[in-house]
Nucleic acid binder design. Sequence first.
DNA 1: CATATGATCCGCT
DNA 2: GCGGATCATATGA
Length: 210
Amino acid sequence: MSPARLPRSFYARDAEEVAPDLLGQVLVRTSRDGSRAAARIVEVEAYGPDDPASHSFRGITRRNAVMFGPPGHLYVYFTYGMHHCMNVVTGRPGEGTAVLLRAAEPLEGVDRMISRRGRERLLDLCSGPGRLAQAFGIARRDDGVDLVTGDLVCVERGTRPEAIRSGTRVGVHETARPWRYWIAGDPFVSRGRPGPPTAKGTSRARSTTP
DNA sequence: CATATGATCCGCT
DNA sequence: GCGGATCATATGA
Protein backbone atom coordinates (compact mmCIF):
# COMPACT_ATOMS: atom_id res chain seq x y z
CA MET A 1 0.00 0.00 0.00
CA SER A 2 2.92 2.26 -0.36
CA PRO A 3 1.92 5.35 -2.33
CA ALA A 4 5.48 5.37 -3.66
CA ARG A 5 5.08 2.08 -5.45
CA LEU A 6 4.94 2.34 -9.23
CA PRO A 7 1.52 1.35 -10.64
CA ARG A 8 0.75 -1.18 -13.35
CA SER A 9 0.30 1.58 -15.89
CA PHE A 10 3.95 2.52 -15.52
CA TYR A 11 4.99 -0.84 -16.93
CA ALA A 12 2.24 -1.10 -19.53
CA ARG A 13 4.19 0.84 -22.16
CA ASP A 14 6.85 0.07 -24.73
CA ALA A 15 10.05 -1.26 -23.21
CA GLU A 16 12.20 1.49 -24.70
CA GLU A 17 9.88 3.99 -23.04
CA VAL A 18 9.82 2.30 -19.65
CA ALA A 19 13.57 1.74 -19.59
CA PRO A 20 14.78 5.33 -19.22
CA ASP A 21 11.91 6.07 -16.83
CA LEU A 22 13.18 3.34 -14.51
CA LEU A 23 16.43 5.22 -13.96
CA GLY A 24 16.40 6.86 -10.56
CA GLN A 25 13.57 4.68 -9.28
CA VAL A 26 14.21 2.42 -6.29
CA LEU A 27 14.16 -1.37 -6.40
CA VAL A 28 12.94 -2.72 -3.06
CA ARG A 29 12.91 -6.22 -1.66
CA THR A 30 11.09 -6.82 1.60
CA SER A 31 12.06 -9.93 3.53
CA ARG A 32 9.63 -11.89 5.63
CA ASP A 33 11.16 -10.47 8.78
CA GLY A 34 10.27 -7.02 7.47
CA SER A 35 13.81 -5.93 6.68
CA ARG A 36 14.34 -4.09 3.43
CA ALA A 37 16.94 -4.13 0.72
CA ALA A 38 16.77 -1.11 -1.55
CA ALA A 39 18.84 0.32 -4.39
CA ARG A 40 18.51 3.17 -6.86
CA ILE A 41 18.41 1.93 -10.45
CA VAL A 42 21.19 3.49 -12.54
CA GLU A 43 21.45 1.25 -15.62
CA VAL A 44 18.92 -0.76 -17.67
CA GLU A 45 18.41 -2.31 -21.10
CA ALA A 46 15.19 -2.56 -23.11
CA TYR A 47 14.22 -5.67 -25.09
CA GLY A 48 11.44 -5.05 -27.53
CA PRO A 49 9.23 -7.05 -29.87
CA ASP A 50 10.79 -8.29 -33.13
CA ASP A 51 14.12 -7.93 -31.39
CA PRO A 52 16.61 -10.69 -32.25
CA ALA A 53 18.49 -9.97 -29.03
CA SER A 54 15.42 -10.66 -26.89
CA HIS A 55 14.71 -13.98 -25.23
CA SER A 56 11.17 -13.67 -26.56
CA PHE A 57 12.23 -13.45 -30.21
CA ARG A 58 11.70 -17.13 -30.98
CA GLY A 59 8.36 -17.38 -29.27
CA ILE A 60 7.11 -18.50 -25.90
CA THR A 61 8.90 -21.27 -24.00
CA ARG A 62 8.77 -22.41 -20.40
CA ARG A 63 11.76 -20.28 -19.55
CA ASN A 64 10.52 -16.98 -21.01
CA ALA A 65 6.78 -17.48 -20.45
CA VAL A 66 6.58 -14.66 -17.90
CA MET A 67 7.76 -12.19 -20.54
CA PHE A 68 4.55 -12.88 -22.45
CA GLY A 69 2.35 -12.33 -19.43
CA PRO A 70 0.96 -9.08 -18.01
CA PRO A 71 3.35 -6.17 -17.36
CA GLY A 72 4.70 -5.32 -13.93
CA HIS A 73 6.00 -8.80 -13.19
CA LEU A 74 9.57 -9.97 -12.64
CA TYR A 75 11.20 -12.14 -15.30
CA VAL A 76 14.21 -13.94 -13.83
CA TYR A 77 16.54 -16.19 -15.80
CA PHE A 78 19.69 -18.12 -15.03
CA THR A 79 22.74 -17.91 -17.28
CA TYR A 80 26.43 -18.81 -17.58
CA GLY A 81 25.81 -21.62 -15.15
CA MET A 82 26.00 -19.26 -12.19
CA HIS A 83 24.25 -15.94 -12.61
CA HIS A 84 20.69 -14.76 -12.33
CA CYS A 85 19.42 -11.69 -14.14
CA MET A 86 16.18 -9.84 -13.47
CA ASN A 87 13.86 -7.98 -15.80
CA VAL A 88 10.59 -6.15 -15.43
CA VAL A 89 7.94 -7.17 -17.94
CA THR A 90 6.56 -4.30 -20.00
CA GLY A 91 4.03 -3.63 -22.75
CA ARG A 92 0.93 -5.69 -23.32
CA PRO A 93 0.30 -9.37 -22.61
CA GLY A 94 1.52 -11.51 -25.49
CA GLU A 95 4.12 -8.98 -26.64
CA GLY A 96 7.10 -10.43 -24.85
CA THR A 97 8.90 -7.21 -23.98
CA ALA A 98 10.93 -6.43 -20.87
CA VAL A 99 13.62 -4.25 -19.32
CA LEU A 100 16.77 -5.80 -17.86
CA LEU A 101 17.93 -4.22 -14.60
CA ARG A 102 21.71 -3.93 -14.93
CA ALA A 103 23.01 -1.82 -12.07
CA ALA A 104 21.92 0.11 -9.00
CA GLU A 105 23.21 2.15 -6.08
CA PRO A 106 22.72 0.39 -2.73
CA LEU A 107 20.59 2.43 -0.32
CA GLU A 108 19.20 0.12 2.37
CA GLY A 109 20.13 -3.32 3.67
CA VAL A 110 23.73 -2.93 2.63
CA ASP A 111 24.98 -5.38 5.24
CA ARG A 112 22.70 -8.07 3.91
CA MET A 113 23.85 -7.36 0.37
CA ILE A 114 27.45 -7.69 1.45
CA SER A 115 26.83 -11.05 3.07
CA ARG A 116 24.94 -12.33 0.04
CA ARG A 117 27.60 -11.12 -2.35
CA GLY A 118 30.63 -12.07 -0.32
CA ARG A 119 32.17 -8.73 -1.16
CA GLU A 120 32.04 -5.48 0.70
CA ARG A 121 32.98 -2.75 -1.75
CA LEU A 122 29.85 -0.63 -2.16
CA LEU A 123 30.63 0.02 -5.82
CA ASP A 124 30.69 -3.71 -6.59
CA LEU A 125 27.51 -4.75 -4.78
CA CYS A 126 24.93 -4.06 -7.50
CA SER A 127 27.03 -2.96 -10.48
CA GLY A 128 26.04 -5.62 -13.01
CA PRO A 129 22.94 -7.70 -13.68
CA GLY A 130 24.29 -10.82 -12.00
CA ARG A 131 25.61 -8.87 -9.05
CA LEU A 132 22.33 -7.01 -8.60
CA ALA A 133 20.31 -10.23 -8.53
CA GLN A 134 22.75 -11.80 -6.09
CA ALA A 135 22.74 -8.79 -3.76
CA PHE A 136 18.94 -8.93 -3.66
CA GLY A 137 18.79 -12.70 -3.28
CA ILE A 138 16.73 -13.00 -6.44
CA ALA A 139 16.64 -16.42 -8.10
CA ARG A 140 14.51 -18.44 -10.48
CA ARG A 141 11.90 -19.05 -7.88
CA ASP A 142 11.20 -15.32 -8.00
CA ASP A 143 10.37 -15.60 -11.69
CA GLY A 144 6.89 -14.16 -12.18
CA VAL A 145 6.45 -12.28 -8.91
CA ASP A 146 4.12 -9.32 -9.20
CA LEU A 147 5.87 -5.99 -8.61
CA VAL A 148 2.58 -4.13 -8.22
CA THR A 149 0.61 -6.24 -5.77
CA GLY A 150 3.25 -8.62 -4.42
CA ASP A 151 4.87 -8.43 -1.01
CA LEU A 152 8.34 -9.51 -2.01
CA VAL A 153 9.66 -7.06 -4.57
CA CYS A 154 8.52 -3.71 -5.90
CA VAL A 155 9.80 -0.53 -7.48
CA GLU A 156 9.22 2.73 -5.64
CA ARG A 157 9.36 6.20 -7.07
CA GLY A 158 12.78 7.77 -6.60
CA THR A 159 14.59 10.91 -7.62
CA ARG A 160 14.81 11.98 -11.22
CA PRO A 161 18.27 11.68 -12.80
CA GLU A 162 19.93 14.87 -14.00
CA ALA A 163 21.04 13.39 -17.29
CA ILE A 164 20.50 10.10 -19.11
CA ARG A 165 22.75 8.49 -21.68
CA SER A 166 22.04 5.66 -24.08
CA GLY A 167 24.16 3.29 -26.11
CA THR A 168 24.34 -0.21 -27.51
CA ARG A 169 23.33 -3.09 -25.28
CA VAL A 170 26.01 -5.22 -23.68
CA GLY A 171 26.74 -8.37 -25.63
CA VAL A 172 24.42 -7.35 -28.45
CA HIS A 173 26.08 -6.78 -31.82
CA GLU A 174 23.57 -4.40 -33.24
CA THR A 175 23.69 -0.65 -33.50
CA ALA A 176 20.12 -0.05 -34.65
CA ARG A 177 18.64 -0.11 -31.16
CA PRO A 178 20.76 1.79 -28.63
CA TRP A 179 18.53 0.59 -25.83
CA ARG A 180 20.99 0.53 -22.98
CA TYR A 181 20.24 3.47 -20.73
CA TRP A 182 22.24 4.74 -17.78
CA ILE A 183 22.54 7.78 -15.54
CA ALA A 184 25.30 10.02 -16.88
CA GLY A 185 28.42 9.97 -14.79
CA ASP A 186 27.01 7.65 -12.14
CA PRO A 187 29.77 5.62 -10.47
CA PHE A 188 27.45 2.65 -9.86
CA VAL A 189 26.94 1.95 -13.57
CA SER A 190 28.49 -1.42 -14.50
CA ARG A 191 31.82 -1.66 -16.28
CA GLY A 192 30.17 -3.34 -19.26
CA ARG A 193 31.82 -1.91 -22.29
CA PRO A 194 30.06 1.32 -23.21
CA GLY A 195 29.61 2.44 -26.73
CA PRO A 196 28.89 0.81 -30.05
CA PRO A 197 31.62 -1.37 -31.54
CA THR A 198 32.16 0.78 -34.59
CA ALA A 199 33.61 -0.65 -37.77
CA LYS A 200 37.03 0.89 -37.30
CA GLY A 201 36.78 0.18 -33.63
CA THR A 202 38.31 3.30 -32.13
CA SER A 203 35.44 5.37 -30.84
CA ARG A 204 33.93 5.31 -27.38
CA ALA A 205 30.34 5.93 -26.40
CA ARG A 206 29.25 9.35 -25.39
CA SER A 207 29.66 8.62 -21.74
CA THR A 208 31.55 11.74 -20.79
CA THR A 209 30.78 13.23 -17.43
CA PRO A 210 28.94 16.54 -17.72
C1' DC B 1 19.91 -38.46 -26.13
C1' DA B 2 23.88 -35.03 -27.28
C1' DT B 3 25.75 -30.76 -27.59
C1' DA B 4 26.41 -25.69 -28.19
C1' DT B 5 25.92 -21.47 -26.08
C1' DG B 6 25.05 -17.52 -23.21
C1' DA B 7 21.51 -10.03 -21.71
C1' DT B 8 28.28 -12.64 -16.63
C1' DC B 9 31.74 -12.33 -12.96
C1' DC B 10 36.15 -12.82 -11.13
C1' DG B 11 40.94 -13.56 -10.75
C1' DC B 12 45.17 -13.53 -12.95
C1' DT B 13 48.62 -11.47 -16.29
C1' DG C 1 43.04 -7.71 -21.40
C1' DC C 2 41.88 -12.67 -21.23
C1' DG C 3 39.94 -17.09 -20.10
C1' DG C 4 37.79 -20.35 -16.90
C1' DA C 5 33.87 -21.56 -14.18
C1' DT C 6 29.49 -24.14 -14.71
C1' DC C 7 24.62 -25.56 -16.13
C1' DA C 8 19.74 -24.53 -17.70
C1' DT C 9 17.81 -24.12 -21.95
C1' DA C 10 17.01 -24.79 -26.69
C1' DT C 11 17.69 -27.24 -30.64
C1' DG C 12 18.82 -31.02 -33.70
C1' DA C 13 19.81 -36.13 -34.42
